[in-house]
Design a protein around this nucleic acid. Structure first.
Lengths: 197, 197
DNA sequence: ACCTGAACACCGTTCAAGT
DNA sequence: ACCTGAACACCGTTCAAGT
């Protein structure tokens, strides 16, 4: 408790500049070298000392979460389109693909996200976005199941895990595009209810 | 070419001792801390200098491949049992589970194995065991498909990838046993031919 | 022929000193 | 209040010196 700077208005101009420069540099490095990129290099490229980076983002997860914020906004936008679809089965399929793309933003991203999904660690800044994705997935699965397109034994979390898995395989580079397509088809066959009755 | 020590008979006693101590220490550390365990610590526990470790195993993959040799022998033994099964569908299912267990031997093992599967890098010591596993998987898939138990669109490599994926999820700790069972069931539904005609 | 361990490079993280 | 950058710790990897 007490008035720490958390809600202080009008942050100093250099603070905002540093934060923005750090985020931009981090995104570039994560894109180029994966989520394990050197934080020292990020700080250097942002033109600040390593101490400044740690002052803004106490650990790698915090920096990663902040960088992912941008991607999350893209995902939300895509989600708005998906939510407008009439066919619940089609909506679920597109959502799973959107999830996979989100997880594929940076190489090595699935690992820290799964670590955040593992346990309710309130200190882990990736937990909140992760939980949101699981909840949204669950909603699409319920809707599609109500419409009779998803097997009763399949839960939302299962398909969340499946999407992360495909993203992980994609990130390893061990599967070409056709192989990935067949993997997605395998998952699709696994969760979809057969249409014939 | 030339007579390098590769095929030299009767290695010195201390060389054999060192190698054995390194393998044992490495296995312990890989079990405790995953495949990213500190090689310095491995050398220390084996009672040798870091230089000796590098002399025996030029890189982490080489050490990992040597440690996996033991596990591979377990897998081959298990494979002998599986090969004796009459039901090709049952054999495939058991083989996929054996694969998953193999990949789950150490935390973080799926990554380097997928890196080895990615490209034909003759220098990567994990390529050979990896290729063997893919080939064996393919054989089981072909047999099961001939017996009409696997969808025509499913290839052996797809199920190899699926098994690694499940092992990866298992390794992250983000899925409890029930969740993993449902994931395996999802894959099973995905590749198995429907029995009704 | 093999081993040793000092040495180098690189990085994450902290913190006393500055402004 | 924030930033700086030196400093510490840890690790992978190499290599000159030993036996």
């Amino acid at each position: 408790m007490g008035a720490d700077g958390q809600q202080g208005r009008k942050p100093r101009a250099d603070v905002r500049r540093n934060r923005a420069a750090l985020l931009e540099a981090a995104q570039r490095h994560f894109l180029a070298h994966g989520v394990g990129a050197s934080l020292e290099a990020v700080a250097k490229e942002a033109g600040v000392g390593p101490g400044t980076l740690y002052r803004h983002f106490p650990n790698r997860e915090a920096l990663l979460a902040a960088v992912l914020q941008t991607r999350s906004e893209e995902l939300v936008a895509r989600q708005a389109d998906i939510a407008r679809l009439e066919d619940a089965a089609e909506a679920l399929e597109q959502w799973l693909r959107a999830l996979e793309d989100y997880f594929s933003a940076f190489s090595g991203l699935p690992e820290p996200l799964m670590a955040a999904a593992r346990a309710q660690q309130p200190d882990n800044p990736l937990t909140l976005p992760c939980d949101t994705l699981v909840t949204t997935t669950d909603a699409y699965v319920r809707a599609a199941r109500l419409a009779g397109h998803v097997r009763p034994s399949v839960e939302g979390y299962d398909l969340f895990l499946a999407a992360v898995s495909v993203a992980w395989v994609r990130g390893t580079g061990a599967a070409d595009e056709e192989s990935l397509a067949r993997l997605r088809a395998l998952v699709g066959t696994g969760y979809r209810e057969r249409d014939d009755r």
